[in-house]
Write a protein that binds this DNA or RNA. Sequence first.
DNA 1: GTCTATATGTTGATAGAC
DNA 2: GTCTATCAACATATAGAC
Lengths: 190, 190
Amino acid sequence: MSARNTDTKEEILRIGKQLIQFYGYNAFSYADISRELNIKNAAVHYHFRGKEDLLMALVQNYIDNYQLLAQQLKAAPLKAVGKLDKFIERYTLLCETDSICIIGSIASDYNTLPDSVKEKVTELINLVMSLVEQTLAEGKRKGELVFTETPKTQALLIMTNLAAGVQLARISGKKDYEAIRKAIIRQVKS
Amino acid sequence: MSARNTDTKEEILRIGKQLIQFYGYNAFSYADISRELNIKNAAVHYHFRGKEDLLMALVQNYIDNYQLLAQQLKAAPLKAVGKLDKFIERYTLLCETDSICIIGSIASDYNTLPDSVKEKVTELINLVMSLVEQTLAEGKRKGELVFTETPKTQALLIMTNLAAGVQLARISGKKDYEAIRKAIIRQVKS
DNA sequence: GTCTATATGTTGATAGAC
DNA sequence: GTCTATCAACATATAGAC
């Protein structure tokens, strides 16, 4: 089906990511993936022995992606608010497709997951949290941001606003998400 | 098994609530319920024809419960912070058993649910949101609370802090939830 | 790398006896 | 109201052919 052999593996990850963000980990099956890629479910098992392995790879994918974002933000000639915007934008995009962030999605199914995945998810959370925390701390130091909480706590507030914001948007609409998004910026803007 | 006939139905609701908050809607089965109650899964089907019916009843249960809370808070000789505390306390309790709130749990599985349940969930959200919003508005009017956002937006911020706060706590621990809980109060306290 | 075929378990659900 | 028995559908997974 694909031009190159390795394409399928990436395609599976792409579809898997969509499915987990739209339906949730326990609500999709390999059949959903194989159907969309016009292959058989056995082919999916070839690339990822089991569903847990796929989830593991998916979380690792996010870790790689956020490490990349961290590097980009470090090098970017952006003020703190601009960096924060780059981060928030990811949630805004999710919102537009009625999807939720993978952390929130996994959090809901967390108690059904094996320890190996749980540990990997912790790694992802620590990475994302420290990215936001450092952006906030740097912005405060430079006088570009103003807030009274510690950077860590402010990061927690922002992260939870966003994570549950996209969840809420599914039910009560995108207006609520927009109100949250704007308020987040107001709360830290000098 | 039970003293009275109607006990079983209530017991099913009780277990179902626990399961959805601990494992998620798509991750538990009637077998989980019947096992815990020492009955057969057919007996569960007698009380709730299908899983959707059980979920529907569960959401209605929450609606009834929050309507009761709204009445209690209205009558209670409490300041606005105290009323807010009563509300927050529910999330703190969830947190202690590694559970998440039913709204967050359902939000994750939302795209797998029938329209009938979706509508009922919207009803629940509207109720909870307006409860928080009104508590905030009243507190501000009486000078007991101080915040610059509209009551509606401030309610959104608090709700998302709490909903994702308990989700995050599952993964990164209860300390993060505690930091969030305290910050919520600081943000509105005069 | 993908297929067919197959195995095994679970789920949601129902019919009918007690 | 609960049971036994049974069901079709689906999910996860593997063996072995191509």
